[in-house]
Nucleic acid binder design. Sequence first.
DNA 1: ATAAGGCCCTGACCGC
DNA 2: TGCGGTCAGGGCCTTA
Length: 270
Amino acid sequence: MPELPEVETYVRELRPRLAGKRVTAGHVYWPRIIAQPEPALFLERIQGRRFDTFRRRGKYMLLGLDSGDSLIVHLRMTGAVRIHPASIAADKHTHLVLDLDSGERFHYRDPRKFGRIWLTADTAPVLHKLGPEPLGPDFTPAGFGQRLSGRRASIKALLLDQTILAGVGNIYADEALFLARIDPRRPGGELSAAEVDALHGAVRAVLQAGIEQRGSSLQDYAPPGGEKGSFQEKHQVFRRTGQPCFHCGAPIQRTVLAQRSTHFCPACQK
DNA sequence: ATAAGGCCCTGACCGC
DNA sequence: TGCGGTCAGGGCCTTA
């Protein structure tokens, strides 16, 4: 489940593998993966274009082309991008292949087919609903508190809401709430100013630590370089149900909030 | 406006 | 071994 640290790692590792390379041809094997424009036009517009800029916004990768278009990629749950030698064949889960002038190929592979890819000169319609970047200057305790005020949904659900904050997913939400010692079940609007402040700091801290570890590698997830991230070794609560809390020893508890597995220490998080 | 639930998908896992 | 059933989960859509 790629979240902000995993997507950031993705962009960093794709840059040296893609920069300056030109698309010579392409093939779409599962049309629904292409959100915009329709696949035939998508291939027509990307052909002959060269990758030149590499950015991230929330969990979206923005791969800029010399035409002014951006290839926007959202990996959702199981999406993966690889730059393979042409000798590696597309398997049944590979839904988009772009031939590159380097002799390599860009593969988009996604067993669950949840990911989406856009090709557009105007990224705003795709991204405009996103809240602030958690590691950027626009994410402030005051603004965060304002977005939470009056909300009755659980703070866990609100952390997953990309319009409040862009880039946090299930792993980093649980980890941030543990670091801030806040019970994930509490209504977001009921957090005190001090708690909002602590959570703001905790979100930044876990995301920054995640980036430094090159993300969390669960199941067979790995960034495009192939070397797995290691933040999963630092998880305090995520998928540690029944195991002792590293802080107090109480068993980590699992519940479901916003239809998502939620892990927390019932003793530490109030 | 907010909250909650369904949907898309398929590999992994479970019980028989 | 095989098979049916259940689960996971990000973002979007519908419903209340």
